[in-house]
């Protein structure tokens, strides 16, 4: 029968393949090509070789290194906080705690709200609720405020999501194994380290993957909370936005000048390579620790 299925590809395969071609494959190939060009539209471009990449990496004009440093530090801290908190909450809420379903519901809720709206909710709460009444300053006063604010927004949002995945992982650990550990005289901590954590390693792999890529690619929350501010201008007259993360840096570079489109695209290619390398390394490292059930 599968031979007879083959000729039905216009019905089954073609719609998805065409849409995928138009909105992913073609833009992706153009994207690689245009990172070596100056371009305005699809047919107006001039080839400039490696100039764009040189400008991104060596000129110091486009805030690339500044935002990469900010993004990297932010990613490390947020991934640790999100995963530790989510695991602990999940562990506590798989016990027989009265009202646990309500608690799970509350923790997960922020995930359904989009990044832009969340960013503004927190901008309002932090500015009007904390910073302005206490210090008379707002979030754009210092990059530390912006950094901590972003941590709050993302952790608040993602802890509930990762909690759901950890709960599913913890529930799939068979009771018999835990009982066997108990009979063998393992303490609570030993059971956690030697039995529970290895058994939920697949969940840890996924949560690390999701939280690393979400933090590293963060855009909406960054735009809504600080928009990259505060900005300082150095001796050479170049403006640096101190809380600008990489994704926002790419958009701003593209939007600020029509002559920087190619540079923004080159930055996006570097960004893509970074994301790919980081996520593949992480998957390889944690996959190795997974055990067969």
């Amino acid at each position: 029968m599968y031979r007879s299925l083959k000729k039905w590809f216009p019905l089954f395969l073609l719609p998805t393949a065409l849409a995928f071609l138009v909105s992913f494959v073609v833009p992706f190939l153009y994207g690689i090509f245009f990172s070596f060009c100056e371009f305005q539209t699809l047919d107006r471009f001039t080839f400039v070789g490696l100039d764009n990449f040189k400008r991104v990496l060596f000129s110091g004009q486009y805030n690339f290194w500044q935002s990469l440093g900010f993004t990297a530090l932010f990613t490390v801290l947020s991934v640790i906080i999100i995963n530790v908190a989510a695991f602990l909450i999940a562990y506590a809420l798989t016990r027989n705690v009265p009202g646990r379903n309500l608690y799970r519901t509350v923790f997960f809720m922020p995930n359904l709200i989009g990044g832009i709206v969340l960013g503004y909710v927190w901008r309002t709460v932090i500015n009007y609720g904390v910073l302005i009444p206490l210090l008379g300053k707002d979030l754009t006063y210092s990059s530390t405020f912006g950094f901590i604010g972003l941590l709050f927004v993302l952790c608040w949002q993602q802890i509930g999501y990762m909690m759901i995945i950890y709960i599913a992982g913890l529930q799939s650990v068979p009771d018999s194994i835990l009982e066997a550990a108990k009979i063998d005289g393992a303490s609570g901590w030993q059971t956690m380290r030697r039995v529970t954590i290895p058994m939920v390693m697949p969940s840890i792999t996924i949560c690390l993957f999701l939280s690393i890529t979400n933090s590293f690619k963060l855009y909406d929350q960054n735009l809504a909370l600080t928009g990259g501010l505060p900005a300082v201008t150095d001796e050479q007259g170049i403006t640096h936005r101190l809380t600008q993360m990489l994704a926002l840096c790419i958009s701003d570079t593209y939007g600020n000048s029509a002559r920087a489109h190619g540079t923004a695209q080159a930055m996006a290619v570097v960004f893509f390579l970074l994301v790919a390398v980081i996520s593949l390394t992480q998957l390889m490292l944690t996959r190795r620790k997974e055990v067969q059930q």
């Binding site: 909105s23 992913f24 073609v26 833009p27 992706f28 153009y30 994207g31 245009f34 699809l42 690619k217 855009y219 990489l246 994704a247 790419i250 958009s251 593209y254 489109h261 923004a264 695209q265 996006a268 290619v269 960004f271 893509f272 994301v275």
Partner: peptide, 8 residues
């Protein structure tokens, strides 16, 4: 990441 393809 979306940034890679969004302009084009």
């Amino acid at each position: 990441p979306f940034q890679m393809v969004m302009f084009t």
